Amino acid sequence: MKSPSPLVSVVIPCYNQGKYLKETVISVLNSKYRPLEVIVVDDGSSDDSLEIAKQIQGEFPEIKLINQENGGVSNARNNGIEAARGSIILPLDGDDLISEEYIGEAVRVLEEKPQVKVVYCDGIKFDESGQKTWNLKPFDRHQLALDNMIFHAALYRKEDWKAAGKYSEEMRYMGREDWEFWIKMLKNEGEVEQLPFTGYYYRLTPTSKRKKTATSEKKRERIAFLNQRHKDFYDRELNGPLRFNRSWSKTYNTFLKLIGKL
């Protein structure tokens, strides 16, 4: 007898994304995969996001709503995942979209290949002016030390989120929390699989956090945090710490060691 399909929990932090939230939720509910639950975490929005989330909850029984004071996206994701009943998690921002086949194909991989920890797909970035393909490098642990090639909206097992230590809420003002989370989950073991189709659509907005955290100051804060938290990983992959000019890190570290400066 075939075992039942695992419940997938889609966790959607929402901070002032009310105008897009219903479109995001509907894209999830249009998925061909079941069973699903959708957890919307309103992260202290100052717009009408909470009212819209309540309207959506009244319309669709699969929706669970968490209302919290503003704590940042990592805090909202962690709280949503804590409340999730599903064994498989898909984090999704409150203004993004997914294709109808994405969840089902990702679950199939996770079910068939226990050695795979993370499944994602091809992505597209879009805004009102159009869209462009998101060119992602293939997964490689050495490359993960230098940069992130897995967007946040990938599927993984809840038990692996817990084992990795969850999302680091200390990175609230640094950005790229998903990069550090993938390092925690994958730095020592686990495979990653990228599905060969476009299943994720990342909305570009003028107020997106990614733009706000793209400054040199935030980059330095981020690098210092990564080096402090994952020294063993960087010593192994880059022969020393991650540098501001990231692509030169291993070369520079090797030179410093050669002359006795590291």
Rank of each mutant, 00 (worst) to 15 (best):
P4N: 14
S5T: 13
L7M: 14
Y15Q: 10
Q17G: 15
Q17W: 03
Q17I: 04
K19G: 15
I26K: 05
K32A: 12
R34M: 02
P35C: 04
P35A: 07
S45C: 09
L50I: 14
I52S: 10
A53H: 07
K54Q: 06
G58L: 08
F60K: 02
K64I: 13
K64Q: 12
I66F: 03
I66K: 07
V73K: 05
R77D: 00
R77M: 14
A83K: 05
R85T: 06
S87Q: 06
S87W: 02
S87A: 09
L90H: 02
G94W: 00
I98G: 02
A106W: 01
R108S: 11
Y120W: 15
Y120G: 02
K125W: 15
K137H: 08
P138N: 05
L146C: 13
D147I: 08
R157E: 07
D160N: 13
A163N: 10
A163P: 01
E170H: 01
G175N: 04
R176D: 07
R176Y: 10
I183V: 13
L186V: 11
G190Q: 04
V192H: 01
T198S: 05
Y200C: 07
Y200E: 01
Y202S: 09
Y202I: 10
L204Q: 04
P206I: 08
K212H: 06
A214S: 15
T215G: 13
K218R: 09
K219T: 15
K219F: 03
R222D: 05
L226I: 15
N227W: 07
R229G: 00
D235M: 12
R243L: 15
F244W: 09
T254H: 03
